[in-house]
């Protein structure tokens, strides 16, 4: 019962009872999705009723690379023309 082959890693996302969206709660090892779901229920929700749980095999997630952080995320804040702040809002538009 060792080796991550039999017990792959799963990422757990939980939406709390009155929460609006699923939030990453943590990860766990489980042999398959059903067991991952049950383990997540024990580990991250204390079986509180009315919550929604998503489990995703960690291998299914593609993450942005930390090495490329700069070119990927730097918002080029010094180039104001990239930000939609120069528009005159036409009169009569209310819900913008």
């Amino acid at each position: 019962m060792s080796g991550s082959g039999d017990w792959p890693l799963w990422e757990v996302f939980v939406r709390s009872r009155r929460g609006l969206s699923h939030t990453h709660a943590g990860s766990l090892h489980a042999p398959d999705p059903e067991m991952a779901l049950r383990n997540a229920r024990d580990l991250y929700t204390r079986r509180g009723e009315g919550v929604s749980i998503w489990v995703v095999p960690a291998t299914a997630i593609t993450a942005s690379s930390p090495d490329e952080k700069d070119p990927f995320f730097d918002p080029a804040a010094d180039k104001p023309y990239r930000h939609p702040t120069f528009y005159e809002i036409p009169e009569g538009v209310r819900h913008l």
Partner: peptide, 12 residues
């Protein structure tokens, strides 16, 4: 227990 997750389940 065989794995940590199962230990939590049995304790629960």
């Amino acid at each position: 227990a065989p794995v940590l997750e199962e230990e939590v389940a049995l304790a629960n």
